[in-house]
Design a protein around this nucleic acid. Sequence first.
DNA 1: GGCGAATAGTTAGGTGGCTAACCATAAACA
DNA 2: TGTTTATGGTTAGCCACCTAACTATTCGCC
Lengths: 180, 180
Amino acid sequence: MPNLLLKDLPRYECLLEAAKEFPDLDPSACEAFLHLLRTGDESARVVEANLARHNITQGRFGVLMILVNRCAGDTSTLGPAELADAAGVSRATMTGLIDTLERDGLVTREPDTVDRRMMLVRLTAKGRSLLGEILPDHFKNMTLLMSPLSEFERQTLVQLLTKIQAQAIKFTAPVSAAAV
Amino acid sequence: MPNLLLKDLPRYECLLEAAKEFPDLDPSACEAFLHLLRTGDESARVVEANLARHNITQGRFGVLMILVNRCAGDTSTLGPAELADAAGVSRATMTGLIDTLERDGLVTREPDTVDRRMMLVRLTAKGRSLLGEILPDHFKNMTLLMSPLSEFERQTLVQLLTKIQAQAIKFTAPVSAAAV
DNA sequence: GGCGAATAGTTAGGTGGCTAACCATAAACA
DNA sequence: TGTTTATGGTTAGCCACCTAACTATTCGCC
């Protein structure tokens, strides 16, 4: 009987045993699945620890990155809905993220004079500077995390993960069909 | 310049380009990392959708599963700290999870007469019954999600993920050293 | 021009994660 | 036996996610 996303991953032999009781349980699928979730979780924690040292979370960091990417010039802006779409979160959630980013002086928010429904979000110099501080270690950690894998293994991993992603998309309707 | 954990994963060529600006950025590591997080995220959503149909979340489901696993007989119990440890969350978080589970009649909670600091959590018949409803589809979805991969590919994936897990543990001190 | 539909951003309420602090109890030590 | 340390569960506050609902604005159609 497997535990899911728990501290101790069940061994394959335990899954074989559990499959006797649950005919729908495929031991190798279950094992791969649990390892995927666990490794993803642990990997996220690694980069989050680096971000936390700069008093920022993954979500807020993502918003800053989107602003840098989508705003070529210093004067460009994005609306909360665009940001939410790019970040893959709801507009309501994005309101909260922008709230705290604005509070910390990392972005500014002002009404759009052209479309009066819109707010315009802009990255501040402080926000840009913070990214400059964060990114070197961020990338180093990422590289270090993947260092046990050879170039070939990384490619293999990406290929396998891409297959799973393609399958996952089928579960969730055509909402994410615009990816890549 | 890469987006992180965003809706559109950057293509490898974009990462090569970005590496010119950021010397610490390793394109293949970054690509593998982003795919790992993205696939994990999407996979979690798949199983969560199934759980949501039964009005339960991943976290609460995990608690029920621990209770089933750790409590061989119907009369056995676990304390909140044990549950938190097994689930990999804090005791404070576990209090909230038990609160809602108790509210929904899926577990009971009573003081321990032997050790008066303790509460004892027990799975109810309703909780057990709910698991019985959930598990068939839960396992089926898991199997279906991994179906694009052959048995060999699944083994390969697990091996690669295990390497990353071992590396991730080094970042987070010996706290999780008891895994597997 | 007027009306209905669509869009934008925010609020309210809920859930689940965290840390720090708290009170109560048990265990360890002198 | 008394004191200190450790453990257990909960609370407060914060954050991030969601849905549903709301108000305001814009768009499309007649």
